[in-house]
Amino acid sequence: MEEKQTEYSIFEVFIQRTQAEHHVHVGSLVAPSPDVAIQTARENFLRREKAVNIWVVPRDQITATPYEPDFFTREMDRKYREVAGYTENGRLWRMFKEKAITLEEIVAYVEGRKARERKKQA
């Protein structure tokens, strides 16, 4: 016997604020179809904020990790992988009478702006 579906499906909602950003998960809703889910997402999550794109994804299509710290633990100090692991560069450059530079400065320079202006814009 065919069972009648009486409940709406759950959709997870992802919103892209500007085209320079990726979609970000903002919450979920229930809807009878993806089309209605999109309409509802706009009403629920974008009453004030601006966005350029919405994705709705049926919850059962998402595969997630469990909330288990084990999966995310770092087995050791990982400073070698980060900018923060190289703070001595500044001191070393000074020994050579040069100053340290950051990637932000390079980006600003290439784009023909000052580093501070870019930060303000971001």
Partner: peptide
């Protein structure tokens, strides 16, 4: 552009790593 934004964030480690 979006992918490059992420790549550049990681390149800032590469920059410091190479200099070091």
């Amino acid at each position: 552009a979006r992918v490059l934004k992420r790549i550049c964030a990681e390149e800032s480690f590469h920059m410091q790593h190479g200099e070091n």
